[in-house]
């Protein structure tokens, strides 16, 4: 693990781990509230958001892209709520309608607009570009304390680190309201907790995590990490605190294992090229969930309606 590891593998791995954790933290509460699909919805509507931001600003600079993605996520959240309330249909269906429609709209916009000269494409949206987030200025482990080298870190790293830290802080601060409003909404409301604001805040936090992670690693990881690590952890424990810690560990493990397997797995198997790290990380997360389903100790059901 020398200089080339620091140059080519350290930053993508870190970004993968932080993106996975940033998504897994709000994901814990989303699955308990049976809103797991919201991560899926947000990561799909990010595409039209980015395309519209490109059409409006004409640049592929990061900030407009992120703001477009964030705005689209908010529009989607509001649309889902509106359809659920006005149309009186179940939340899953409302999410399904909104994210497929907006994603399809995004694809049409992408085809119609002159985006061939920029690197906006569906593959990129799905898989991100984790393998390209390398740290060429690094010359070895010494660079970790070298301010000049550090200033050339891929900008995605501090961004996703900040968002992951934000998610951790929000989880700690709003632990009690989140837990109570997720477990017993009526009691929480009677106590005076702003239950609707808590629900909206959670979804907005999820949107922030999704957009930041999408920027770094693409939507496949976002979708997988909102659901797989929390659901895996849920199968292994009956304590919320333990579940959240486990989900963080599982998210990090999936990111590291997935990254390593994507880079070396095919070579070990005799193929000559690596596969997509984002795809492999999501696959590993899914396999871990599958193993927890088969052998997980504590329990058997996740996200089942009461009485079902």
């Amino acid at each position: 693990m020398g200089a080339s590891f620091v140059q080519f593998s350290l930053t993508p791995m870190l970004i993968g781990v932080l993106a996975a954790i940033a998504c897994a933290l709000p994901g814990n509460f989303l699955i308990l509230r049976r809103q797991a699909l919201i991560g899926d919805a947000i990561s799909h509507v990010v595409l039209p958001g980015i395309v519209v931001a490109f059409l409006v600003t004409g640049t592929v600079a990061t900030m407009p892209m992120l703001m477009g993605a964030g705005a689209a996520a908010l529009v989607a959240v509001v649309l889902i709520e509106a359809i659920r309330r006005l149309g009186r249909i179940e939340p899953g269906a409302a999410m399904g309608v909104v994210f497929t429609a907006l994603f399809a709209g995004g694809v049409l916009l992408l085809e119609q607009s002159d985006t061939s000269r920029v690197h906006l494409d569906v593959d990129h949206a799905l898989m991100g570009n984790l393998e390209t987030l390398i740290w060429l200025r690094a010359s070895g482990w010494d660079s970790v304390i070298d301010p000049v080298a550090l200033s050339h870190l891929p900008p995605e790293l501090p961004r996703i680190a900040g968002v992951a830290a934000l998610m951790a802080v929000l989880t700690v601060i709003f632990w009690r309201p989140l837990k109570l409003a997720s477990f017993d909404e009526g009691f929480a409301r009677a106590m005076g907790l702003p239950v609707s604001a808590i629900g909206l805040g959670l979804v907005i936090a999820a949107a922030v995590a999704a957009v930041a992670a999408f920027d770094a690693v693409g939507s496949i990881i976002v979708i997988a990490m909102f659901i797989c690590p929390p659901a895996t952890a849920r199968l292994m424990t009956d304590r919320l605190t333990t579940q959240v810690w486990l989900s963080v560990a599982i998210a990090a493990l999936a990111a590291i294992l997935g990254y390593v397997l994507a880079g070396y797995g095919p070579i070990w198997l005799g193929f000559d090229s690596a596969v997509s790290a984002a795809g492999m990380i999501a696959t590993v997360a899914g396999l871990m969930l599958g193993m927890a389903c088969l052998w997980g100790g504590a329990r058997g059901r996740v996200g089942v309606a009461p009485g079902a």
């Binding site: 308990l32 997720s182 017993d184 009677a190 009956d238 304590r239 919320l240 009461p306």
Partner: peptide, 24 residues
């Protein structure tokens, strides 16, 4: 509230639920 209004599969313990009465 009505007992059936919550998901009793929620990952928490009896004492934790009672302590929710102290959250305010």
């Amino acid at each position: 509230p009505q007992r059936a209004s919550v998901d009793w599969d929620f990952p928490t313990t009896v004492i934790d639920v009672v302590l929710m009465g102290r959250y305010r």
